[in-house]
């Protein structure tokens, strides 16, 4: 009997994941257009949050550059979209090519920025990365007004379903990459950098290299997401593309969910993004206020996020035995 239940529990998690995946993948067949659009935006936040947590959650280097990588993706898509309009109209999945380029350009930017700034500790790194968002935004504003004469750009429009499938694909890729990084020695290396960077150097980790490469990898997915979301927004300008909210929300979502486990940021982003949608539609005037209160409460009372609370409850339920064996 025991053996059978053991096998079941082993299959439980992959089973649930597979079920979620099937539901998500078949959603356009039966879901309303609204549900597709809503899920697209939830998945966007999940990607931004998991990417952020991949680097910042484990190393403790707080990156505020998410909006910069996202905006770079958006502009890649706006510029390339105009060049390749004919190809996109012929086959909507041509956008995958543009999305990949958007991701790679973001990664290059992250690599350069990382190589310059990841020697800075703590708050200096955070400030620099946030400065990057403003720098690129203002540079673009200046360029657009001076040379193109208009502030914004129109982006090629494609179907919501295509956007949904592409963003779902990006999410799957990100989850796979995150899973394998966390399980590899690089995952442990990231964590050890977060715990004690000097000791990590002592035992032979090339700390700068590990930081820069993981930072660049995390930027790939942010850039890709920006590239595909640009096509949903159809009109973009530097203010829309380099929106500081896209820097701060993923940080808050990750903290809300808890950054210790891989699923913490996912849960945080899903709950938070859905909450945002409800608050925005039900209480349009108080939405920011309620948002703020939820956040303050999270930081004050849930230091390990939602996942931390759940684990505490589980530990308390199963706690009797542990307490005895410890004592």
């Amino acid at each position: 009997m025991n053996k059978i239940s053991f096998n079941y529990s082993k299959l439980l998690l992959p089973g649930i994941l597979l079920a979620i995946l099937v539901v998500l993948a078949t959603l356009p067949l039966y879901g309303s257009n609204y549900s597709i659009v809503l899920l697209t935006s939830i998945i966007m936040y999940v990607i931004l949050t998991v990417s952020w947590a991949l680097f910042s959650g484990s190393t403790g280097y707080i990156s505020l550059a998410t909006a910069a990588f996202f905006g770079v993706g958006i502009y890649t898509s706006a510029i390339l979209g105009r060049t390749f309009t004919a190809s996109i109209l012929a086959n909507e999945y041509f956008v995958v090519f543009i999305v990949i380029i958007g991701g790679l350009i973001s990664a290059c930017l992250a690599f350069i920025v990382g190589a310059i700034t990841l020697r800075l500790r703590g708050i200096y790194f955070a400030i620099f990365t946030f400065g990057l968002v403003e720098l690129i935004k203002n540079l673009l504003l200046w360029y657009e007004v001076k040379f193109t004469g208009t502030r914004g750009r129109f982006v090629v429009v494609i179907g919501n379903e295509t956007i949904y499938y592409v963003i779902l694909g990006i999410l799957l890729l990100l989850l796979l990459v995150t899973y394998f990084i966390r399980r590899s020695r690089y995952g442990l290396a990231l964590e050890s950098i977060g715990e004690h960077e000097e000791a990590a150097a002592h035992i032979g980790i090339n700390v700068t290299m590990v930081k820069v490469i993981i930072f660049a990898i995390s930027a790939v997915f942010v850039g890709m997401t920006g590239s595909i979301m640009a096509m949903r927004w159809t009109y973009i300008d530097p203010y829309i593309s380099f929106d500081p909210n896209l820097t701060f929300l993923p940080v808050l979502m990750a903290i809300f969910g808890g950054t210790r486990q891989m699923y913490g940021p996912i849960i945080g982003a899903v709950v938070f993004a859905y909450l945002e949608e409800i608050l925005l539609t039900r209480f349009p005037y108080y939405y920011m206020l309620i948002f703020g209160i939820v956040l303050a409460a999270t930081i004050l009372y849930l230091p390990n996020g939602l996942v931390g609370v759940v684990q505490k409850i589980i530990a308390r339920l199963a706690g009797g035995k542990h307490a005895h064996s410890r004592g």
Binding site: L188, E191, E195, H196, E198, A199, I203
Partner: peptide, 13 residues
Amino acid sequence: SHIPEGRRLFADM
């Protein structure tokens, strides 16, 4: 291999 002063362990790992 350098075994540093004050141990420098990764405390939460």
